[in-house]
Write a protein that binds this DNA or RNA. Structure first.
Length: 225
DNA sequence: AAGGTCTCCAACCGCCTGTAT
DNA sequence: TATACAGGCGGTTGGAGACCT
């Protein structure tokens, strides 16, 4: 599908293209995709570069089949949010929205249709109140009411990690991170028990949380510093 | 073994939103 | 405030491999 010298390349990525893109992203970060596309000399669109990075090259991506636990989470969150794949993906570190979308279409949509016809496919009350299913990254320590919001922030910054893998305090080591941390702690402490400050927040099993990630993203905070 | 069909998934497309000027 | 541009998102497509007849 290549034409003249000025035409953009399409189709599968070559190994050399992947390497070149990864180099550029490591230098410039996950932003300015059009610029990265031009500088790289890959003759790919910025969108194509972004897609390739997010869905394939990004570190910490999980490979391999979706586990039954992940499937359960997908089903549950889809039941709650519908086709909000990127939002669902935020709850599954290492999985991409594209991957989840594909998995849903190929594995779960039929199941859902069948079960709905049988009247038993729905987020049942047991599942919807199961903290582990709702919030898979909750740690063993319930005294830390920040886990959920913290996890969401990490994912919004493209760091696909859970609290058990990530050093919470490393967030406060640079100026912008300090602002993020201050903002985050403020939002957390502003939420009242059982009364979420943001739409996605709430109180589960005595835990208080708010989905700070939706209103406080690192990208915008960078610009504040 | 060969041809047809199905499944999966990487990649593209177009629309929408947010941000910069 | 208006406009242009970049990025994000969900829907769709096309190709490769698996499976079936």
């Amino acid at each position: 599908m290549e034409q003249g010298d000025n035409s953009l390349r399409k189709g599968p990525w070559l190994e050399e293209e992947d390497e070149q893109l990864a180099r550029l992203v490591n230098v410039f970060g996950e932003r300015k995709w059009d610029s990265i596309a031009i500088i790289s000399g890959l003759r790919r669109s910025g969108k194509s570069c972004r897609m390739r990075w997010l869905n394939y090259l990004r570190p910490n991506l999980k490979r391999g089949p979706i586990s039954p636990e992940e499937e359960q989470i997908i089903v549950q969150l889809h039941d709650r949010w519908g086709n909000k794949w990127s939002r669902i993906a935020r709850s599954l570190p290492g999985r991409t929205d594209n991957e989840i979308k594909n998995y849903w279409r190929s594995h779960l949509s039929k199941k859902a249709t069948q079960s709905q016809e049988e009247g038993n496919f729905h987020c049942n009350s047991n599942a919807s109140h199961n903290t582990e299913l709702d919030f898979p990254y909750q740690t063993e320590n319930p005294s830390n009411s920040c886990n959920l919001a913290y996890c969401d922030i990490a994912q919004n910054d493209g760091m696909m990690v859970g609290p058990d893998q990530y050093d919470l305090w490393s967030l406060v080591e640079s100026p912008y991170e300090t602002r993020l941390y201050d903002h985050w702690m403020f939002e957390i402490s502003s939420g009242e028990q059982g009364e979420p400050k943001f739409g996605g927040g709430g109180c589960h099993n005595g835990w208080n949380y708010s989905e700070v990630g939706e209103s406080c993203m690192l990208g915008s905070l960078w610009d504040m510093s």
